[in-house]
Design a protein around this nucleic acid. Sequence first.
DNA 1: TTGTATGCGTTATCAT
DNA 2: ATGATAACGCATACAA
Lengths: 352, 352
Amino acid sequence: MSTRAPRPKPAGQRATIADVAAAAGVSKATVSRFFNHRERLLSPDIAARVEAAIAMLGYSPSPMAQALSRGKSRLIGLIVADITNPYSVAVLRGAEKACQDAGYLVMLFNLGNESGREREAIDALAGYQVDGFILNTLGRGAGVVDAVALHGKPAVLVDRRHAGMHADFVSLDNAGAMAQVCEHLLDGGWHELLYITEPQKGVSTRRERTAAFHDCVAAHAPQVKGDVFESEEGDTAGLEAALRALHQRARRGRRQAAVIAGNAVVTLRVAAAMTQLGWHFGRELGFVGFDDPEWAPLIGPGLTTLAQPTDEIGRAAAGCLIERLRGLEGAARQRLLPGELVVRGSSSLHAT
Amino acid sequence: MSTRAPRPKPAGQRATIADVAAAAGVSKATVSRFFNHRERLLSPDIAARVEAAIAMLGYSPSPMAQALSRGKSRLIGLIVADITNPYSVAVLRGAEKACQDAGYLVMLFNLGNESGREREAIDALAGYQVDGFILNTLGRGAGVVDAVALHGKPAVLVDRRHAGMHADFVSLDNAGAMAQVCEHLLDGGWHELLYITEPQKGVSTRRERTAAFHDCVAAHAPQVKGDVFESEEGDTAGLEAALRALHQRARRGRRQAAVIAGNAVVTLRVAAAMTQLGWHFGRELGFVGFDDPEWAPLIGPGLTTLAQPTDEIGRAAAGCLIERLRGLEGAARQRLLPGELVVRGSSSLHAT
DNA sequence: TTGTATGCGTTATCAT
DNA sequence: ATGATAACGCATACAA
């Protein structure tokens, strides 16, 4: 019998700090110090004994108990509007990696597009003492996610601003990106433009892109004409009508017409409508879409897209938050990352 | 001054059970009982006082402290091989929903395709006292995820078996699905088949589909011929060669050739190769692919696919686990869910 | 029916 | 340098 076992552990249980202390013949405090203040105040010989006991029992501290005791959990709450959205997933990936590299674990809460659950998500995560939040939420109901609701914890917003919320913000440079897209189309000789977006509903990204589109068109008037169409979920008829109208206008003005899709979801709808109409990208209509899904090269002559640096956005978001967790104070910051235009067949004129 | 405050809370802090007790003028135990054993042992008047105090302070119990005290966390650990994989995400979605409905929260750990991190993931999650695991891992290194590593907690496997592991298993009925696919192709007059899969490497799902493919072909020999090709990540040349060879064989045997893709990743590769070769689905080659991505209708004449009931798979997995958490004992179970064939243009012969 | 005391696994504040 | 001991927020056996 080495050291008397306090209680014969039911085998399957995790070893606790008390077990280690008993096995090493020291106090719990000493074991705790081994992890937290090793060099400063621990004699080599006793450190060795503790280390041996730890190895023998396969002990590792319980993050839960640590969180309770310290008031910090090394947990980051990540709330995502819709896990089905590839954009969100791509961002999530970058963010999670950055968090893990910094020693944080991510707790994910998926809203499943039910905006009413924002509050529930925040409360649930706060219950687990997350140290901070990364928010990629719907962003409609304004103050729902207000600072108070965050329980005094820092947060970073991704892709969607919330009015009057003091928090860092990371996103694509929407204005710059839209400018790139427009210039590219204009250079290619497409002078009758239609920007198709999901219903704006106050979503910041959608509003910014729409505004930038108007700016670009205005800057090149009157040779260039531009219009905006809001595409609703099930309304295929409306979308097809808009496409037909665009084509008509272009013919009358002896212009080439092109569509800009506000995100991958819209791109999908437009592609479906084109199939329905029997039209081809680069022939009846030019096309550029925001987001660069893996299937973009495979639709017709290939879809020209504006790729977002999703991984970087995620990393930047995590980075901002972690800096705050390390004590950085100061006004809310803004990180706007540039997009990259990926040119494929849909934006160059194909003989008909 | 209603009731004397024990300590003037720094405002931003969460209310604790002690605060509620003080405000209601009762003991902490009574407050605890209000949540856990309300009806059984609590007088109405005092319950009312507690309830009022709770409402006033906006109190809710700390799940962390509860977990520490109870030894159960109402947390479920979900380990996913690659969050980038849409199949995994779709399953995750169903599982998360089912868990939340049952009052469990999901902690997500993404392996990012690094199989070496399985152990790390399990340990990290176990540290947070997760009550059980849902595993959708790589499944290569056999025993890495053995029962011991699970810290004695129940687990359910999704889509990938682990040899010799006592755990419930949920997946597509691979044999049945492959049979459906083959029958459909055969009925359509495609008699020279090629099954293209990612390198099998001992992954159970891939092996099962391949075996089922061989069975189907054998059952219809000699009128039908079938071959298998393993497509490596970057090897586009090899894939194109395989496609050409298939086409050749079919011509010689005066048959129509069709490809079956083992999953969406392979489908993407095949579609890219077809574009490269200047071939068209339903003309030079018939096609059916496992998994039904949203872009399947938009490639050429539309891709015929075998859609997996991903949402159900996720729900079933969560359901199995939760039953175990409620105490269900007994041998490991197996839930094989049927796929659904979605017929589109790629599997019907288009005049050339 | 309600209150008291103890434990859950840590960290931190004291002593020593 | 090390060891008691009191939090942390909650549940529960035991007393009353």
